[in-house]
Design a protein around this nucleic acid. Structure first.
Length: 574
DNA sequence: TAGCATTGCGCG
DNA sequence: AAAGCGCGCAATGCTA
């Protein structure tokens, strides 16, 4: 995350079947260039990294870094041109005439396969593969120049530099996490499945699932009902006098009928079976590791997405299957109320900062007197950040508006801008996408003389939808930036820990994974996999990194980001 | 029969 | 059927 340093840059790209490395000084002036056979690339990268520790500039991280990792080579820093382009392309702080806005070849999806397959060694065709950004050296060099110019043209260059460094560090970590994997105890997973779903029988349906299904069919008097078919289930419910409009758990739970209990039970079991059952285990867990595909920057707000394996939806039920290797342990940490804390800092709302002083921000709101109990405080705060207008949440929001006028003013203003078709930005300068042409047309049609009330209603509804999106964008996006800085700082600190004395056996994974490393990340939570002897140091690294992330974003502004942190062999909660 | 939309539910 | 943001995925059923 050192962005103010004077490190040099090395641009990597392809040319006629080889790699080319262009060495630049800190100002971007070319020092020299060298041609490297692809087979020699890992060794050469290792040498350059050891001697110069440059910031590696490449088209996209998975394409370059995953083969390097597979060859046992790790780098400290990079600049991911594709991710940087996606940010600069729309950044409101960048000059509207900047050429980076026109280099559309870089508006590309990441060149990763989404399946559980392993990385292949530089096997991209010279003539650009189906997707992914350009890979040739000339394209990389010219895009890098456009991006440097864009940052220089920005009204907030230092924030943007920080954002690009953090985003790129995230890309390195995502590739490393995929390579290392999350330690997963398949036997424990199997035990959980068998305990919950019942023994697998020859018929295929586990015993408890079959039993729940039988009770549902009996209660509805329909022995051949396909419960998994929503339309059929709905009709059967209606025939039995259960007059629901949907088959969602929320609505069913309000009904009183003998079918409700077994049906909710069936849905719970069927969900576990189809989402994370034995088929999932066989497909996604190998050699004691779950290796999901993380997609940094995959969400418009800057959050990560995932592709394959459902890495971002691991049910709490299965967390006990996350288990450290023999001789190793896990440091599991999550930030308490990240988003409202970020909002307090962004808006310099001293009342909300005061509420955030302790470990529990919602308790702080209660102490401040704005709202009577913690549960309501939480609902109100979420409602304020999401744009609730009705229900319990909507009713409570005005009280927060009175108690925390600056914080609420910030999100209200973001919503107003969004409704008007404007663009909002995060703390470090990631901007929301502009409204679509269709959205604009709808709004202008509604303001013309010949318009119908239906047009007006529809336009207003869509305007409010967009307002809720931009309202949340500034908070969710800035929280994602905080989390990226946390991760990047953590990675650096873990890498600096002394080597493990008697390296405990680790049964799979790349060389760097024999050292404490980040094994999982989910918006506001990290899991570090570490040899036991380094557990305390790793936990300290997690805590120190959080404090440093706060300083990077908000300087000396007095806002804390307390962690719930524990050292344990498994990741199970409570 | 492949591709798309809908429904529902898991996560933050 | 969430009121109120952002996602991914599986199963089903319809359509081209």
């Amino acid at each position: 995350m050192d962005v103010t340093d004077t490190a040099s840059w090395v641009v990597l790209g392809r040319s006629a079947g080889d790699a080319v490395a262009v060495h630049l000084d800190a100002d971007g002036a070319e020092v020299r260039r060298e041609r490297i056979a692809l087979t020699a690339l890992p060794g050469r990268v290792r040498e350059i990294e050891a001697s110069a520790a440059p910031r590696w500039v490449w088209g996209d991280t998975p394409g370059w870094y995953e083969p390097l990792l597979a060859a046992g080579v790790r780098v400290a820093r990079c600049h991911d041109l594709r991710l940087a382009h996606a940010i600069l392309r729309w950044a409101a702080s960048v000059d509207s005439a900047a050429e980076v806005r026109r280099s559309t070849a870089w508006d590309a999806a990441p060149a990763v396969e989404s399946g559980p397959a392993t990385a292949t060694l530089f096997d991209l065709d010279d003539e650009a593969s189906a997707d992914g950004p350009p890979s040739d050296i000339a394209a990389a060099e010219s895009e890098f120049v456009r991006q440097r110019d864009a940052v220089a043209s920005s009204t907030e260059p230092s924030r943007l530099r920080l954002l690009l460094a953090a985003e790129s560090a995230g890309a390195l970590i995502a590739s490393e996490m995929r390579a290392a994997g999350l330690p997963w105890d398949a036997a424990e997973h199997d035990r959980i499945l068998t305990r919950t779903l019942g023994e697998r029988s020859a018929g295929g349906t586990p015993a408890h699932v079959a039993a729940a299904a039988a009770r549902v069919r009996a209660a509805l008097g329909d022995p051949s009902l396909s419960i998994d078919s929503q339309p059929k289930l709905l009709r059967a419910l209606h025939r039995a006098g259960v007059l629901v409009e949907s088959t969602s758990r929320w609505e069913l739970a309000e009904q009183r009928h003998p079918v409700i209990e077994p049906l909710l039970e069936y849905k719970k079991l069927a969900r576990l079976q189809s989402a994370n059952g034995w088929a999932w285990l066989a497909e996604w867990v190998h050699d004691g590791r779950f290796r999901p595909v993380y997609v940094p920057g995959g969400v418009v707000t800057g959050r990560w997405a995932s592709s394959g394996g459902g890495a971002l939806q691991l049910p709490r039920q299965l967390r006990a299957a996350v288990r450290a290797d023999e001789g190793w342990t896990l440091v599991v940490a999550d930030v308490a109320q990240l988003e409202p804390r970020v909002l307090a800092a962004m808006s310099s709302d001293s009342a909300l900062v005061a509420a955030a002083r302790g470990r529990d921000l919602y308790a702080g709101i209660v102490e401040g007197g704005a709202i009577a109990d913690r549960a309501d405080a939480k609902i109100a705060m979420l409602g304020a950040m999401y744009g609730a207008t009705s229900g319990q949440s909507g009713r409570l929001v005005p009280r927060l508006r009175r108690a925390y006028p600056r914080a609420m003013g910030l999100v209200d203003e973001a919503a107003r801008i969004g409704e008007d078709g404007g663009v909002v930005s995060t703390w470090l300068g990631r901007s929301s996408p502009p409204p679509s042409d269709g959205w604009r047309e709808m709004q202008s049609r509604a303001s013309q003389v010949e318009t119908t009330s239906a047009d007006v209603d529809r336009a207003r509804r869509h305007a409010r939808d967009r307002g809720r999106f931009t309202r949340n964008f500034v908070v969710q996006g800035t929280a994602a930036e905080w989390a990226l800085c946390w991760l990047a700082e953590l990675r650096t600190r873990l890498a600096a820990l002394p080597p493990v004395s008697a390296s405990p056996a680790v049964h799979s994974g790349p060389a760097f994974a024999r050292h404490p490393h980040v094994a999982f990340f989910l918006h506001d939570e990290v899991i570090v996999h570490t040899p036991r002897e380094h557990a305390d140091a790793a936990a300290r690294a997690v805590t120190d990194a959080a404090a440093q992330a706060a300083r990077i974003l908000f300087g000396d502004f007095p806002i804390d980001f307390p962690l719930d942190i524990r050292i344990d062999a498994t990741a199970s909660k409570g």
